[in-house]
């Protein structure tokens, strides 16, 4: 339960799709002129991420990882189809988006009318593929967490596009320097919001670190060691130089 809660807050605030890793920036910039359209796209992203991340998790677990094919029989244990993950993930996403579009059109025409034009756009939204690729890179351990990860990173993206759309609606009344109008000021505002979101980084540094974090911490300590070694080397070099100067 605790790890679910932690992953949820981490994906929304600390590793926010837009502010920390810049995923889905293209549609974020293009569709954020009005709050109402931003809400439509945001909702569609949450939905599609929530469907595709668990699906791709299953694909990754039972088809792509090294030794994942072992359920077919022991002689398949050595296969590693990892290099196929890009093409399988994007195919899953493209088909799911198409499928979702057909289903929504059939059963909820009103939702289709509000989401309609955004659904095809989503197939090429980097946030969707990025969600699956990060899910793979972070080795999320079970399908519940994968579902959680998909939905919560979708919510993070939703919050980001909602915030920027609201700001852009207001900024129309301000006197922005002409060359910065439109795209330029949006970039800079996003940067400032990103700096704000950086402050969430300290939120989840408690004792109960899940295994996925343990990995990153070991990487950090390795880097730390290298830095320490560099500093030591430099100090040695300095003292050596001083000795020579004397």
């Amino acid at each position: 339960m605790l790890e679910h809660l932690e992953l949820f807050f981490r994906s929304i605030f600390v590793d926010n799709m837009v502010f920390a890793v810049f995923l889905g920036m293209c549609s974020y910039l293009a569709v954020s002129k009005k709050v109402s359209t931003a809400v439509g796209l945001g909702a569609a992203v949450i939905f599609v991420l929530g469907v595709t991340v668990p699906l791709n998790w299953l694909l990754d677990q039972y088809l792509l990882q090294e030794g994942a094919l072992v359920w077919l029989g022991p002689e398949y244990a050595d296969y590693d189809l990892g290099f196929l993950s890009f093409i399988l993930f994007i195919a899953t996403i493209a088909t799911m988006v198409q499928l979702v579009e057909i289903v929504v059109e059939k059963f909820s025409p009103s939702l289709y009318n509000s989401l309609g034009i955004f659904l095809p756009l989503i197939a090429v939204n980097c946030a969707i593929l990025g969600g699956s690729l990060f899910m793979q890179a972070r080795e999320i351990p079970n399908i519940g967490l994968a579902l959680n990860y998909g939905i919560s990173s979708g919510i993070g993206w939703f919050l980001a596009i909602l915030a920027i759309a609201a700001i852009r609606e207001k900024i129309r009344y301000s006197n922005v320097p002409a060359p910065l109008r439109g795209l330029g000021i949006t970039f800079i505002i996003t940067g400032l919001m990103g700096i704000g979101f950086q402050s969430f980084g300290g939120m989840l540094t408690g004792d109960n670190e899940p295994p996925e974090e343990a990995q990153t911490t070991t990487v950090e300590t390795k880097e730390d060691k290298e830095i320490k070694k560099e500093i030591e080397d430099k100090e040695k070099a300095i003292s050596y130089n001083e000795a020579i100067n004397k």
């Binding site: 109008r181 970039f187 400032l192």
Partner: peptide, 24 residues
């Protein structure tokens, strides 16, 4: 930190559009 990239790109856009005002 990541957000700095956004601000740098914002400034590049600013410089480019000040030089070529047709793009505003």
């Amino acid at each position: 930190i990541p957000p700095a990239a956004l601000i740098v790109v914002g400034i590049i856009i600013w410089v480019q559009r000040s030089r070529n005002r047709a793009l505003i």
